[in-house]
Amino acid sequence: MMIVTEQLKKVYGKEKIVAVDNVNLSVDKGEIFGLIGPDGAGKSSIFRMLTTLLIPDGGSATVNGFDIVKDYKKIRHCIGYMPGRFSLYQDLTIEENLQFFATVFNTTVSENYHLIKDIYCQIEPFKDRRAGKLSGGMKQKLALCCALIHKPEVLFLDEPTTGVDVVSRKEFWDMLKNLKQMGLTILVSTPYMNEAALCDRIALIQSGKILSVNTPEKLVNNYGETLYTVTGGNMYKLLNLLRSYEGTDSCFAFGNSLHLTLKYQTKKDTVVAYLQEEGFKDAAIQETIPGIEDCFIKLLKTN
């Protein structure tokens, strides 16, 4: 086990707002583990506790076998951390940033160049450009390089793809796959459900609580209900109509269609007939494979 948390808890301020509520997690060596949840779910707080930046208000955790409170110095030797916000020196160039972090971590760029080669070669043409003038994708790549340059055993990536375009995001996940091949353990958080499928295992988190921990496949397979997509007509009116319909179990907007689950006895055709009766002539219902987001919404409802 690379990371283990037991009843980890974090409370903020005088109002005692619970940001992390008795979280139990365990991450294996060499696995990409995803923390999936909306903004404010407590992901960053968990990251900051595990990276020894915050002291938990309850419970305990170990990283690479070291306690996050007592052995914080040892942990700081073996982890790489990429905070949610871009946190490099904007007035230093790409090369200067990388070199600085290499020396701070007591190593050199050439010593561990093999680790960052694939990523760094993409931004190397701009190495004399100041970090503040880079695009979002390039900033992320540079930040990843800086977090990797000292050959950490565990990599903590807090929302690394937020604010990055789709192409760069895909590239970024390919890089994580490569790093995993090299034996790194990666804990990554993201608010994007479609990225969850790229992790080995994921934990769904909401309001500081872990809803479920599973592999993405099993999570989807355990959905346990038939999911339909509904299209046709005014989406907003359609949504309201279906929500008030007696046979509906749940209905929510999903891109430009609706996702619908039905109560046990209700048949698909009955719904179509009902919709047409209500004036939605083009309404169509199709069975579909549930995604992570569907699972997440379902879990939210049952909790």
């Binding site: 982890i79 951390y81 871009f86 946190s87 020196y89 972090f101 971590f105 007591n106 000292h150």
Partner: peptide, 13 residues
Amino acid sequence: ELGTMEILLVSPF
């Protein structure tokens, strides 16, 4: 403010 302190603190420095 810029968040670089977070990385510096996490380093063995």
